[in-house]
Amino acid sequence: MIEFRSVSYAFDDVPVLEDVSLSIDDGEFVLLAGANGSGKTTLLRHCNGLLTPDSGTVRVDGTPVEDDLIAARSSVGMVFQHPRDQFVSATVGADIAFGPENLGLERTEIDRRVDAALAAVNMTGREDDRIDALSGGEQSRVAIAGALAMEPTHLVLDEPFTGLDDPARRSVLERLASLAADGTGVLLATHDLRDVCELADRVIAMRDGRVVVDGPPANALGDLDGLEVRVPSG
């Protein structure tokens, strides 16, 4: 479980998060909606200690994040915008192995995890492919596989659809939904809620660094007016 308790954070004296409290359970699929600059990215980067709150606490599975960054970062897999800049190796398999190698696992265990992660994003057998030769959608899926190879309890994604066409977007979404169904908590930040709402358990919306909506999609959608979020039409 990821838990925020009255978290505030300022950058250059400008408040970016103000008194944010929320929690995300294992196996829950949560959407984080809000306009650019509403604080989504800053919130996500608190989940694994890339940022530390000015006040308040963030806990992962009960432990404050800054007490054990390795535990937090292996429990919370993170996928950023621009997957192209997140790869550390030129080939798919070597890149996915990077995280497990950092945990000091045995080579056989690393190989097993690479295979499992590739299977989870529907890319079995592609470990020797060159990353630069992949399509945008495939690159996004490899980035997700790289996070999954850490066997995290949660997966946090920041606008992973930037630059993807609709079919690629849909195939990534379907993978996320099936991961959530298998028990991984998913927190997905996006300003585009088209065809994701029916997959999600909950929608959290932000404005000016505050959580303004938190509830099931059916209830939440009506409250999203004025947040510069694309919502399903009709």
Partner: peptide
Amino acid sequence: MATNQTSV
């Protein structure tokens, strides 16, 4: 998770 994370 049962990894040897303490040694990382």
